[in-house]
Structure formats: structure tokens, C-alpha cells
């Protein structure tokens, strides 16, 4: 893409992938974040992509979201988009222990595909509004996230609680990681010559 003189510099692009079992509310979280709306009726997703411009810490960035299918016959199909992702929201439902257990698998697959233990990753316990149906305690979830060394956040796509926080936290992680890697590259002698040119 040729950049015209008047075209503003494209904002940084962060690619977020929504993962998690079927019916935990990945699409609901996405739609809430994107359009401020909560869709009641459930329709299994295959794959949907979204793009949103947000101002993150004073800087305009673009967040690409890939909303994926919870039910997939073959896990390998996911490899490709896991590979494309820069950060992951690993969602389970606090009312469904199975979905919580499934996060383990997702985590493992992501790490395998990305081959990176420090990939930006958030464990998200959704449906926090349904407190009376809770099956997964905060402590259990927290323990797992600590074990993975990732943050844990409980959200409600219905009430919009922590929805922005989840996405922004992840975007921030992606951003800082990118910055760090850039810095590393710049600090390398190969790139320092570029600086001189600039």
C-alpha cells in the first residue's frame, strides 16, 4: 500500500484472537466491545473478523478481532489463525466448569503454535452477572492464571462489566511487547545504523 503524502500514518494494528469453548460468550464480548450491544440469541460462530479504532493511552490504535468457533471438529484448523494472532483472550464461562477446563488445551495449543511463552494472553471468566450460577470460583481461576503467569479478569458481556478493560489490557500488552521488541531490534547494532539514516 502506497502511502500518499496526505494519508495519515496508519495507526498501530493489534490482532486479537478470541478463543474458548462454545457458548462461553466470545461473540457476545466482541459485539459488546464493538457496538455496545448485547445479543441474547445464540448462534454458533464459525469465524468473524472485526476492526475497531480506539484511543489507547492517548494513542490511536486499531484492534483487529478474530472471533472464532468454539466448536471445531479438528483443533488443527485453529493453527492458522492462532499463528496470525498477536494476543489472545481465552474465555470461559464461570457457570461452566468444563469450559474452564478447556482453557488448558487452548493455552497449550496457542503456546505450541506461537512457540512463545510470553505471548500476550488474558484469561477471561465471562458471565460474571450470573453469580448465582457460578461453578468456577474466582480463586480457582486466579490460581490458574497465576500458574500461567497471565492476568485474570471476570467480565459480563451483558452488563458490559470489564469488557473494555479486557480488550484494552490485552491491547496494552501487545503494544508494550511490540515496543520492547522494536527496542531490542533497535539496540542491536544492525539496526542502529538505520537510526543514523533517520
Amino acid at each position: 500500500m502506497s502511502v500518499g503524502k496526505k494519508t495519515p500514518i496508519q495507526p498501530a494494528l493489534h490482532k486479537v484472537i478470541m478463543v474458548g469453548s462454545g457458548g462461553v460468550g466470545k461473540s457476545a464480548l466482541t459485539l459488546q466491545f464493538m457496538y455496545d450491544e448485547f445479543v441474547e440469541d445464540y448462534e454458533p460462530t464459525k469465524a468473524d473478523s472485526y476492526r475497531k479504532k480506539v484511543v489507547l493511552d492517548g494513542e490511536e490504535v486499531q484492534i483487529d478481532i478474530l472471533d472464532t468457533a468454539g466448536q471445531e471438529d479438528y483443533a488443527a484448523i485453529r493453527d492458522n489463525y492462532f499463528r496470525s494472532g498477536e494476543g489472545f483472550l481465552c474465555v470461559f464461562s464461570i457457570t461452566d466448569d468444563e469450559s474452564f477446563q478447556a482453557t488448558q488445551e487452548f493455552r497449550e495449543q496457542i503456546l505450541r503454535v506461537k512457540n512463545d511463552d510470553h505471548i500476550p494472553f488474558l484469561l477471561v471468566g465471562n458471565k460474571a452477572d450470573l453469580a448465582d450460577k457460578r461453578r468456577v470460583t474466582f480463586e480457582d481461576a486466579k490460581q490458574r492464571s497465576d500458574q500461567w503467569n497471565v492476568p485474570y479478569v471476570e467480565t459480563s458481556a451483558k452488563t458490559r462489566a470489564n469488557v473494555d478493560k479486557a480488550f484494552f489490557d490485552l491491547a496494552r500488552k501487545i503494544s508494550s511487547r511490540k515496543y520492547r521488541s522494536e527496542a531490542q531490534e533497535e539496540s542491536s547494532p544492525k539496526k542502529s545504523s538505520c537510526c543514523i539514516i533517520l
Binding site: 464459525k46 469465524a47 473478523s49 483487529d64 478474530l66 472464532t68 468457533a69 492458522n80 489463525y81 496470525s84
Partner: peptide, 11 residues
């Protein structure tokens, strides 16, 4: 921004 969506469908 549809590569992943398309590729998944193709798979």
C-alpha cells in the same frame, strides 16, 4: 482482514 476467516472456511 478476512484471510483467517476465508482460510478457515477453506480448511
Amino acid at each position: 482482514n478476512l484471510l483467517q476467516v476465508v482460510w478457515r472456511a477453506m480448511q
